[in-house]
Write a protein that binds this DNA or RNA. Structure first.
Lengths: 193, 193
DNA sequence: CGTCTATTTGAATGTACTCAAAAGCGGTGG
DNA sequence: CCACCGCTTTTGAGTACATTCAAATAGACG
């Protein structure tokens, strides 16, 4: 049951058997069906989630009701509304299942206790935050330096399996273009090989 | 000499006097004059920096030679080319002084030692990484959901002092528009109050 | 004062958007 | 099994916004 999440942690730090047991004792398994919500913008967000199976999307709804996807979270991703989680404020984003999904949730106070108790876990989260930051920086740079075709190509290259798994519409919302534009863009790419 | 950086850390965690001494012993003070570089894209990046005085910019130069500013770093900011720093790879970005600037540098191996030795410091970096992540997410959301006028307004609101301190050209490169467009945009804003 | 850079303004261009409609695809119930 | 429904994808036409290139003006610094 916990093999994937323990493997995920073992990528960066080593836990003893007791630490693993303590860690998993804080997790709560949860299932969300396709189109259901894990976090809704405006509501409080007390959990951080690890995706064990399935796929989620995290998005922001603007004042015109347009959806802007901040990230997809397939297996092995950690996700939360970080703003709401750390500040104990209403979430800014919504997290919704794109498929029937299974997550492990860790409640904020348990999380704080955990990182206090086990320095290795604190290190683990520091490391994955560093990596997340790099990927966000990369995304910002891409949004400024590339046109939509370049952003799409990078997406396909970086996440080939997601490109298969997701609808073109979802990818468009992630890239920051309309589905119509993405459709046209792909037609254009084929012509030029 | 170290009062600002210690105050910065004390915002999130408490260090003992000995820990403070140990911490500051790992720092190396460095001065960079306006227009000089702290990190150059393509070169290795072994340090993380804290700005004690002055102001830096971190930017990416695209294949057309256009500059895209990822962040400004005035006093009390931590900055590095995170990609290069954590992966021991050539830096992707360049960090340049916008004013005569004074930083404290911490070398990667010392940094690793530091966070191993002092769990509080590891916690500190986890916390500031969380906050950095939130601000990057916010920036991504803004770039997708707002036009250039909205992004400019938010920038002025969020960093009023930077707006004074920086040239309009630098702000344009941060917002992801041309200096010409920003100039026109501001002229337009004045008309509509 | 003179030079260099930043800012403003103008005109033409281009990329992606909106709105609208048609075509394709998948799932459900008769 | 087929017909229908809802949603996604494609295509079209017109539009909006920001860009490029160019030139003029203004400011900063030695």
């Amino acid at each position: 049951m916990y093999s994937l999440i323990l493997k995920n942690i073992a990528r960066h730090v080593q836990l003893t058997a007791e630490e693993e047991t303590y860690f998993t004792s804080l997790l709560v398994a949860k299932r969300v069906r396709k189109k259901q919500f894990l976090i809704v913008a405006g509501e409080e967000c007390r959990y951080e989630y690890f995706v064990n199976k399935g796929c989620l999307k995290q998005y922001y709804l603007d004042d015109k009701g347009q959806e802007h996807i901040l990230s997809f979270a397939p297996e092995e991703w950690w996700i939360s509304d970080m703003y709401g989680f750390i500040n104990q404020q209403p979430a800014l984003t919504t997290i919704e299942a794109l498929e029937d999904t299974e997550v492990f949730a860790i409640e904020k106070s348990k999380f704080e206790e955990l990182v206090q108790q086990i320095p290795c876990i604190e290190r683990f989260f520091r490391i994955i935050l560093q990596r997340a930051l790099v990927s966000h920086q990369r995304r910002i740079i891409e949004s400024m330096s590339l046109g939509s075709a370049g952003r799409y190509k990078n997406f396909v290259q970086q996440y080939p399996s997601l490109e298969q798994r997701l609808s073109q519409r979802q990818i468009a919302f992630y890239l920051g273009v309309t589905p119509e534009s993405l459709s046209r863009m792909k037609a254009g790419l084929v012509k030029s090989h």
